[in-house]
């Protein structure tokens, strides 16, 4: 039943639903040291997706409030980077993981499967994806602060570059020993 790492990263495995389930089960087994039962594993995935989505949602709300407060005390000076910083964790984190959670709930209810959203399943190295989102978000806040102060710093280019690289890498590379 369990596939090897090589088989896991083979995208052709995603072509049919049966293999997809197999791959996901394999992934879960590798990640969970306890080796929990199949039905339990599906529930764990749902909970994780929900937890991730809620965490990103809380971060988005916090950033929204932070941007509003910063602008309130900014004497009318504003920066789009500050105002819309919340959109990064919202669109990149809360939305896909909430979609993933809802899809898992639906597929589990309909035929006991464990299929999540297509987007999150494409993320092969989730920690890199999260790190990328964090980098982009912090970079946006930092750029907003500098904009509002009326200054620049060439070092801020590192945020979008690192963030984009991390996110792109998270879709492309599956570390041999399952870093995800």
């Amino acid at each position: 039943m369990f596939t090897s790492d090589t088989e896991y990263i083979d995208s052709s495995k995603y072509q049919d639903k049966k293999h997809k389930t197999l791959v996901l089960d394999s992934y879960e087994i590798i990640e969970d040291e306890e080796g929990v039962a199949s039905s339990h594993r599906v529930a764990v995935k749902e909970v994780r997706s929900l937890q991730t989505a809620v965490t990103y949602l809380i971060i988005s709300i916090a950033l929204m409030l932070f941007g509003a407060v910063y602008e309130y005390f900014g004497h009318g000076v504003f920066s789009f980077y500050m105002i819309y910083a919340f959109a990064i964790p919202l669109l990149g984190g809360a939305l896909p993981y909430m979609t993933d959670y809802i899809r898992r709930l639906r597929t589990a209810a309909s035929h006991g499967g464990s299929g999540g959203s297509k987007f999150t399943m494409l993320i092969r190295t989730p920690w890199m994806y999260h790190a990328g989102l964090a980098t982009l978000t912090v970079g946006s806040i930092m750029k907003g602060v500098l904009d509002i102060y009326g200054t620049t710093n060439s070092l801020t280019i590192a945020y979008p570059v690192a963030g984009a690289l991390l996110i792109a890498t998270s879709f492309l590379i599956k570390p041999k020993h399952c870093l995800s």
């Binding site: 790492d5 590798i30 989730p126 920690w127 790190a131 020993h177 870093l179």
Partner: peptide
């Protein structure tokens, strides 16, 4: 599977 469990990197530590 055991091989994978033993050599699994601490992803949380890397992220932290």
């Amino acid at each position: 599977m055991k091989r994978n469990n033993k050599k699994q990197f601490p992803k949380q530590r890397i992220l932290a």
